[in-house]
Nucleic acid binder design. Structure first.
Lengths: 181, 181, 181, 181
DNA sequence: GATGAATGAGGCTTCATTCAT
DNA sequence: AATGAATGAAGCCTCATTCAT
């Protein structure tokens, strides 16, 4: 009956990603445990604090995202890759923004693993961006931070407005970024 | 020791604007009461429901914002006015956007006063935008909704990143909007 | 605009009787004030405590009831009068039982005015009962207390069951009391 | 220091039976928790809603009562059994009737378990009654409902008046029911 | 190591009662 | 004397977290 510790950890993170994405901050640990088919105490054994669980979920999410970005680095058309990157981040990030916001719960600094994940993530963005710039398919003075900020901004707004409206906004931002793809 | 009712209402709304802006939905009515130097029950006398308080705070905020926009309508340079509008909304809206999101708490329709305030607000944006478009100082196919979505998106991000980074993002968006000013 | 003190007192008692009858213990002083078209503070000026208001309302109710009973004393048929008394008390008492129960709020003894009203009330019952007994229209060993207890019991049950069921129960009790009328 | 779940559930129901019986609807969940030597949250874990707690307490009470009635069905003298039934219900039901009333709190239909318990309970009454009627020891036209209504009425009054007075009232009602025993 | 039960703190809301006008 | 506003205490309920099994 007992499941392996590592497997449980994975189940919990999966459930957490889903629940946080759906219910936002309102999500209770109990609900996460239920979806993970695990007792509450087990969640707390793996993640002593709710904040810990949030951070771990966010890190895991960033890592999965980064993997996807790595694929874009190898795409033939650099401009197309850049556009894809922005679109992917906005749409994927959508529900997960809640997660990223929860990280700032009380203005405390984030834990080291989180910052590390963020840096790695930024690094992936940078590579796609630089390739696009080299190909003349992105505004030369755009920085990773610019892209990051704009993407986060757009992602925040996804759950609040109609899809079509988001698409229009994304297009305008891409124009502003000089993206051709 | 006894304050006037109207004054208290104002104090409460002020405190609410601050607290909701800072703590988001997590903000407790008790905290607002504390900051307004008022008993909890007093808050509930003025705003029977937490949702009522949220809506009232949002309306008040939208109205103050709209007043500022009206000034821009009369500015000489339409392009300059449009740029100012976006900048104002983003920086002023900053922390207060959280507030607007709280309105969507449960996907239910907003109360009439709120929709009214939103419409009036949009109307002010529209006038500035159209003047700019007529003067060739804004992308002709841009809509009020586009502006609104982009501004909300940027505003969300203000409390999370450095001011300079926001300025850069705003500039890129303005480029995307074809704004010259 | 100002109303006379005595008139207000009357309005309040009227409202209280209605509200307590309708909402039971849930009735709030504010609601009573509203129905009496009076400020809450006015209610408290007349009746310093909610308990005071309850007692005053109960006394008033008992007095009105007693007046009705006095009429029965003069009725031609003593047996008929006795039956009427029981029926009246049960049906009238119905909604007012809540009121009488509130009197026992915390097991404290009732105030003097209340006990006085109760005694006067019992006295009226006694006269009707004795006349019926003298006419052979009521069980000779029945006491005022018996009647009072039975009536209170039945009244309690009125709001909980169908009218027809109450009528049957009343009839059975009247049989037990040897009432012919 | 940690008690078993089932034991706690029992303690809570016991406390609830006592507290609801004494204080009526006014009884607070906190008070029940205190008497059960349990945290409030524990009460809510076992009974998610106050209404749930009320219903569970009532069901438990009805079941205990029904068990007692079953014993009467086997008694030799049918008339004696019927008299015992009424006496038992009135005295045992005493303070607990408040409980049953709480069920009607908002006029909403009761939950299935409660209605089931009520039916079983009525069924037990019916058997005793019919046996008595067959033996000529109870008024032939009396129905279960009549008995139920009368018993509930009398039970309501038990905590309010002296025992002797209740006994007299019960005797009168039994006479009305044509009970000989 | 995993689990379900327990818990105190805290959130929203209502109410009897008091106070300044 | 009358009023509306203010208030703290208390009620119901939820949640992150801890404990005994």
């Amino acid at each position: 009956m007992r499941r392996d510790g590592a497997e449980n950890r994975e189940r919990i993170l999966l459930a957490a990603e889903h629940v946080f994405g759906t219910g936002g901050a309102a999500a209770s640990t109990e609900e996460i445990a239920r979806q993970a088919k695990v007792g509450v105490a087990t969640v707390f054994r793996h993640f002593p604090t709710k904040q810990d669980l949030i951070e771990a979920t966010a890190v895991r999410y960033l890592q999965k995202l980064e993997e996807q970005l790595r694929l874009l680095i190898d795409e033939a058309d650099p401009g197309r890759a850049f556009v894809s990157l922005v679109q992917t981040l906005v749409s994927t990030g959508a529900t997960k923004m809640t997660l990223l916001n929860l990280l700032h719960t009380d203005g405390q600094g984030l834990s080291e693993p989180v910052t590390a994940a963020v840096h790695t993530f930024y690094d992936a963005i940078q590579q796609v961006l630089e390739r696009a710039q080299a190909a003349g398919a992105a505004r030369p003075d755009a920085t990773v931070q610019d892209v990051s900020v704009l993407v986060r901004a757009l992602a925040h707004v996804v759950p609040l407005v109609a899809d079509a409206a988001v698409d229009r906004a994304v297009k305008i931002v891409l124009d502003g970024l000089g993206a051709t793809g």
